[in-house]
Design a protein around this nucleic acid. Structure first.
Lengths: 345, 345
DNA sequence: CTGTTAGCGCATTCAA
DNA sequence: TTGAATGCGCTAACAG
């Protein structure tokens, strides 16, 4: 028969004069058949170019050896943020140990959760979904185990993250303590075309809380701090930086939600012939390896991106094997390295 | 029945008093059933929490809506190179248009091609495989359409790349023309534990040819150029840079195979209180967006990473729909921006 | 417009 | 040890 070109288990079986079962055993539990039959089967398999169909196998054993990673926006956008790459590296590290592959899922047709419906995976990692997102519902409908990353801690699902409130508090304090009052907080603007994701994530909410707590502590009026959504790309943050710094009274302190935003400011400062921290103080989240190139290295919350991804995947694997799993708040430190100084004006 | 917890198409059909076909139509071609049956089916589906199983669906229609991207080394390693991220962004862009997801495949158990056997995909993109790699065989065995990226142009498969020989030639010329003779070429060292991948790729071979052609042209003896395998991470290139620059007679010109390698040199130069291009000239491949942060911006071959990924995916989609597809050599320019000057010593 | 009937390719229980 | 039969959940010809 062999209609679609590729040999099937049946072809191989009849060609080798054995049953389908024997062939199946040869590929899955060789110890259950005799050495000779095994050899014969494998020889003919090679000759025929037979290899078991992963999809059919997946259906039969109810396992695909893949986990999905659900991104909040399009791939082209999200991967402009090197922090995401760090996460992915961590996930990859854990997956390779378990012989799993990673399926990158992004919002299809603008719907955040859409990709989950059709994903051929055993479980899912979810990035930065709001607590009230319906992604939880979707996963449960499909019976998919899932772990969230940077999505806030709640009782009914496993989350890996840091103490964002505290981290943001410390960062804000760094600026306030140095005397800054004209402060701009750079938010992670969601893409406008993925409406569903535009509800601010739990992480962002927590960070804002932390910032406000610091301000209260220093008796600073909330109106003095400006919140600006500048997204997570070098380009958008460069633009934002230029527009901010060209003001008559530009901010003296910048609090970024991501290293990649800080890059824009470093770049702009350079282009304008200014200098950090003399003319502008800046603090940020992430502290990615590549930020070592910046001079001075930005004061930052040291986010363990790699570790986060790794840990999240590990917890997911526990769920997949029906083990207990629980949320983890990873440690992070504040590194005050040299991008903060008292305001000059 | 409903054994595994999740409702199946059969459950839904009997519950709704219709046949399985009707349900299938409701989800796949709603226009083929009456408005009322559709509504009834969808209502009960929602009530039951039914959603079609992607694996079963994949088996039946022989289509998974996924393409794989096969990496030459582990994910944690490969994604240290931001060029790869650029490629991925391009692939993502193309995939989202076609409603495809990306499966990231890395060598399992140290075998480059191993992941391909079990990958639940309709086609594969292959990164930088050597021309004589058996990955071609594997894909053909599985009947998987595939497109290579940066793998050299050959007649029997579709490849997307640039003219590496010429590009490398131009880069080398930049250094030679400025008068450099103590030159170090930074190679992309493969990880030692993936033996299969250690045969140098077509791309590297072509680049070396280009470099040698330039040297011949300038009458420079080949022995004056040093080839050093320093890998593709900030750390490894930083180490290499320090060891090179601390020599008694350090090289005056560096030719990198990737931006990420140049980062290490910029960093080292900074740490040593030296300056580019006064104390060291450097040219490189890639010219990634984030390299704008470097000062001076490195002279480089402008590699269209995003476009490459995008184009490769598009060609693969053509193959998937049985259309004609062909290799493409993308344009690239040499940007001589300011990281090259005559040697000072 | 709707239902019946076969597969899709493989894993696995139960007998032999 | 091996083989026949059944099921995984869904799609798609083919009838009705």
């Amino acid at each position: 028969m062999r209609q679609s070109g590729r040999p099937t288990i049946k072809d191989l079986a009849s060609r080798a004069g054995v049953s389908k079962t024997a062939v199946s055993f040869a590929f899955n539990s060789p110890e259950r058949i005799s050495k000779e039959t095994y050899q014969k089967i494998m020889d003919i398999a090679k000759e025929l170019g037979y290899v078991p169909d992963p999809v059919a196998r997946g259906l039969a054993r109810r396992k695909t050896q893949c986990i999905g990673i659900l991104l909040p926006q399009s791939i082209a956008y999200v991967f402009q943020n090197p922090y995401i790459t760090e996460l992915l590296r961590g996930v990859g590290e854990a997956c390779e140990k378990e012989n799993y592959s990673i399926l990158v899922l992004s919002p299809l047709e603008g719907i955040f959760t859409h990709a989950v419906y059709n994903a051929v995976v055993d479980g899912v990692l979810i990035l930065g979904a709001a607590g009230d997102s319906d992604v939880h519902t979707v996963c449960r409908q499909r019976g998919l185990p899932y772990v969230t990353i940077d999505a806030g801690f709640r009782d009914d699902c496993v989350n890996i993250g840091i103490d964002d409130e505290k981290a943001a508090y410390e960062l804000a304090k760094l600026l306030l303590e140095a005397g800054h009052r004209r402060i701009c907080v750079c938010m992670l603007q969601p893409l406008s075309d993925t409406l569903e994701a535009s509800g601010s994530s739990e992480t962002i909410r927590n960070r804002c809380k932390g910032i406000e707590r610091a301000m209260d502590e220093y008796g600073v009026d909330k109106s003095q701090v400006e919140y600006m959504e500048i997204g997570t790309s070098c380009d958008s943050s460069l633009d934002a930086a230029h527009s901010l710094l060209s003001r008559e009274k530009p901010p003296t302190g910048i609090l970024c939600m991501a290293d990649v935003q800080a890059y824009g400011f470093y770049h702009a400062v350079q282009e304008l012939g200014l200098s950090i921290p003399r003319d502008l103080s800046i603090v940020t989240f992430d502290n990615l390896p590549q930020s070592n190139l910046l001079h001075p290295k930005p004061s930052a919350v040291n986010q363990p991106g790699f570790q986060k991804g790794c840990r999240a995947a590990e917890e997911l694997f526990k769920l997949l094997s029906a083990q207990e799993s629980q949320s983890t708040m990873l440690d992070c430190q504040i590194l005050n390295i040299g991008s903060v100084a008292p305001p000059s004006t």
